[in-house]
Every structure is written in structure tokens, then in C-alpha cells.
């Protein structure tokens, strides 16, 4: 896809996010909006996948794991827009009986979801396991994992961060949605992440950095990481993002981490986001 086409998809995804969270008056719009460009690039440009024939084991295709499961509206919208399931189903988000649970789960049968996430800090371990499975199976496809920056405070992340370089997990690309915010405030105030780049480098990762809301930079970084796969080292992209990106009043604050917009706010947000693929 061209950069402009990817931007159009991302705009529609952002509309979906606002409408889903507004519709059920629940969910996490801020982080979802911020991570939209990264995951749009993965699913619409980068990953080799077969949405119409979803396979749980992901054999013969690239795989994606979302570690910070609370930004599920973003993932659900992208999966639906990519053809994993009907876009109309987005209207069921967080409602009783839905396959679109508050946090993603594979047990309700939603195509595209392979592992539950939401309890933070676990996705990188799972992605490493999936990557090891690919190696054992002789499958050269890649595994991608998106993490939040707040969840870097979880100890398990650093168990996994130590493992991947030590065991040469080179068919994995980790990405951090580095928006510098979490529920209680800025990461600097809550628990400074310090020099995240230096930390991962010290653990032995090859580290990339990009503007996680600049589609061209995202695609360039992912292209480079894919070219450098299978060379004996683990790779991670620090994607600097803006929580709430695309909606002016949701940017520059952590207040929209887990708060839905009211009718007026939703209308204002949607007026800022171009409808490109048709609302669900």
C-alpha cells in the first residue's frame, strides 16, 4: 500500500475506535488512537497474512501479538477492516455475548486473536514462544509484538528481554508504543523508564527508533527490521507516539487512557477524522 492509502485506513480505524468506545461508553481510546498507525502499517503493508483463512497456529504466515490488550478497539477495527471478520461486528464491542471482549481473547472464536492479553507484561514472552515454534517448524515468517511503554514496568518484560538476545530469537520484531503516559500520569512521574534504548541495547537487542505516528517512518523502520531478521539478533522498535493522536482534545494528556467520550465529544472527535472506508 502507498503511504497515503495507509493513512486513509488509519483515519477510518480512528473513527471506528471513537465510535466503538462511545457506543458502549467504555474502553481505552487514548492508547488505541496512538498505536493505530503502527498496527495499520503491520496489517495493511508489512505482514504476510491470510485473513480469510485464519489459522490459530499461524503456520506459513506472519503473526502479531498485542501485549497491552486494553487498546483492543484499535486491534479489532484493524482486524475487521483487513477482512478477518465483518466490520458490522465492531458495534458489539464490550457488550454481553460479544466476541469483541473488553480485552482480546481467543476463546470466543474471533478470527485474528490467538492469545488473551490484558494482564500486562506477558505478550513478549508469548511472542518469543511463537517465534521459537516457527523455528522448530522451519517456518521463516516473522512474529511481531506490540507492547505498551507503561507495561515496561512489569518484571516479566525483562525476563523476556533477557531471553530473546541470549537465545538468538531473530525472527521476532518487538515494538514499544512509547507514548510516555499511563493511567496515573506520565511515565516519568509514575515510574521513570529511564533510557529505554540503552536498557534494551544493554540486554543485547538491536534498537530502532521512529515517530510512531509518521507512516513513512514506521514503514521504513519495519522494512529495515524485516531485512535484518534471521541474522542472529533480536530487534525492537521504540515507536514514539502521541496518546490520543488524531483527536485534538485527547492529545497531550493521559486523561483519555480509559475514558469514553460523551456524545458531544464523540461528535467533535469524528469531525476531525476523515471517513475513508465507510463507517460500520
Amino acid at each position: 500500500m502507498t503511504i497515503n492509502e495507509l493513512k486513509d485506513v488509519a483515519s477510518q480505524v480512528r473513527r471506528d475506535i471513537i465510535r466503538m468506545v462511545h457506543g458502549c461508553q467504555s474502553g481505552h481510546p487514548g492508547g488505541s488512537l496512538g498505536a493505530t498507525d503502527i498496527v495499520t502499517a503491520l496489517y495493511f503493508d508489512q505482514m504476510q497474512i491470510d485473513p480469510k483463512h485464519f489459522k490459530m497456529d499461524g503456520a506459513g504466515e506472519d503473526m502479531f501479538f498485542l501485549s497491552n490488550g486494553h487498546i483492543s478497539p484499535m486491534l479489532y477495527s484493524i482486524l475487521a477492516r483487513r477482512g478477518y471478520f465483518p466490520v458490522a461486528e465492531l458495534a458489539t464491542f464490550r457488550r454481553l455475548g460479544t466476541r469483541l471482549q473488553g480485552h482480546p481473547t481467543p476463546v470466543e472464536g474471533l478470527p485474528g486473536i490467538r492469545m488473551a492479553s490484558g494482564s500486562l507484561g506477558q505478550g513478549l514472552s508469548v511472542a518469543i514462544g511463537a517465534a521459537q515454534a516457527k523455528k522448530l517448524s522451519g517456518d521463516n515468517h516473522l512474529v511481531f509484538c506490540l507492547m505498551g511503554d507503561g507495561e515496561q514496568e512489569e518484571g516479566q518484560i525483562w525476563e523476556a528481554a533477557m531471553y530473546a538476545p541470549a537465545k538468538n530469537v531473530d525472527n521476532l520484531v518487538a515494538i514499544i508504543d512509547y507514548n510516555k503516559k499511563q493511567i496515573d500520569g506520565s511515565t516519568d512521574d509514575v515510574m521513570s523508564l529511564g533510557n529505554l534504548r540503552a536498557k534494551y541495547e544493554a540486554f543485547g537487542w538491536k534498537v530502532y527508533e521512529c515517530d510512531g505516528n509518521d507512516m513513512q517512518e514506521i514503514v521504513d523502520n519495519l522494512n529495515e527490521a524485516r531485512e535484518n531478521a534471521h541474522q542472529g539478533f533480536a530487534q525492537i522498535i521504540l515507536a514514539h507516539t502521541e496518546m490520543g493522536m488524531g483527536v485534538d482534545f485527547m492529545m497531550g494528556t493521559h486523561k483519555w487512557h480509559g475514558t469514553p467520550p460523551n456524545d458531544e465529544q464523540a461528535a467533535s472527535a469524528l469531525s476531525q477524522l476523515k471517513e475513508t472506508l465507510g463507517d460500520y
Binding site: 492469545m115 508469548v126 514462544g129 523476556a160
Partner: peptide
């Protein structure tokens, strides 16, 4: 903790 996550990924 990492071991259980890796195991889940392998099982998947």
C-alpha cells in the same frame, strides 16, 4: 513467568 508465556506461544 517468561517460561509460561513461551510455553503458551509454543503451544499456539
Amino acid at each position: 513467568a517468561n517460561m509460561i508465556g513461551i510455553a503458551a506461544g509454543l503451544a499456539n
